[in-house]
Write a protein that binds this DNA or RNA. Structure first.
Length: 280
DNA sequence: GCTGCATGATGAA
DNA sequence: TCATCCTGCAGCA
């Protein structure tokens, strides 16, 4: 569950499982944290939320557990008595009133004092979270026009967590496709109306990924692909991982390239390179 | 069994 | 921009 929307969904699930309940057992794989586990017993889990791809579990008394799943971490919810059947390595287990949440495989976990969370090396560099910080289209536009962002190509820029926290590699391709923009486009070169279209795509695609559990494809396109019996990875996205397949809008085969050392998918006809004119 | 790749991020150059 | 770390897994012997 790697990108922001999926981390948000994980946070929701852990929140529902533990929030308002008192911890009776805490286990950490990491030696530094293991020493502190006992100090959390008896505290209530006050809330679980996320900021970009970071998940924050907050405890009564101002303690916060930071965890980052990177590419492979996963939270599992279960009864305290029942060990989940997974071959993965357990990193964190929180048990409150018989209910448990276990984090597997993640390697970036740390415990913080709420008041010092601003000093966290990763969190301190994050831009606003598109889902939790209620970013508006107007705010997104003005952020894209900020001096330190406006001169950078969107392909690299969208992955920069300092712009907006939570956008990852599949959202990048999807957002650019729905905005009809090429990855080399720079926000500073865009007319107001196009910039607004980009800002809306950023917000809407991210919101849809959250609502639809990571499905960013347009519902009717996804339904059509699904009817053809395509596997999930083929109908989940509008362009991502669809290289060679026809664009849903114009039929041109989707292309794959590499931008900022990550794969990026786009339609060369719907997402024209800045300065080029459409061919007929 | 081994290799390469992954929805991520860092640090050196 | 590149190598590197983290871990799991798909694909291929």
């Amino acid at each position: 569950m790697p990108e922001g929307p999926e981390i948000r969904r994980a946070a929701d699930r852990v929140h529902k499982q533990l929030a308002g309940r008192r911890l009776e057992h805490v286990w950490f794989y990491f030696p530094d944290l293991a020493k502190e586990a006992a100090s959390l017993i008896g505290r209530e889990v006050s809330a679980v939320d996320s900021w970009g791809k970071a998940l924050l579990t907050r405890f009564e008394g101002g303690r916060v557990l930071y965890s980052h799943n990177q590419l492979y971490g996963v939270w599992k919810l279960h009864d305290a008595e029942r060990e989940p059947d997974t071959g993965r390595s357990l990193r964190v287990r929180l048990v409150a009133e018989g209910r448990a949440a276990s984090l597997y495989s993640a390697s970036d976990v740390s415990l913080w004092e709420e008041s010092r969370l601003g000093e966290h090396p990763f969190l301190s560099r994050l831009g606003p979270d598109l889902l939790t910080h209620g970013v508006t289209v107007e705010q997104a536009i003005s952020r894209l026009q900020t001096a330190r962002f406006r001169r950078r190509g969107l392909g690299g820029l969208l992955l920069d967590q300092a712009l907006f926290a939570g956008i990852g590699n599949y959202l990048r391709s999807e957002i650019l496709f729905f905005a009809g923009l090429h990855y080399k486009t720079k926000p500073g070169d865009l007319e107001e109306v196009v910039l607004a279209r980009l800002a809306r795509a950023i917000l809407e695609v991210t919101r849809q990924a959250y609502d639809q559990a990571g499905v960013t494809n347009r519902p009717d396109w996804a339904a059509a692909d699904r009817r053809l019996g395509a596997p999930r990875r083929r109908w989940r996205f509008a362009v991502f991982e669809r290289d060679g397949l026809p664009c849903h809008v114009c039929g041109t085969p989707i292309e794959r390239t590499s931008v900022a050392s990550r794969r990026l998918y786009y339609c060369s006809r719907c997402q024209l390179q800045p300065g080029s004119t459409p061919s007929t």
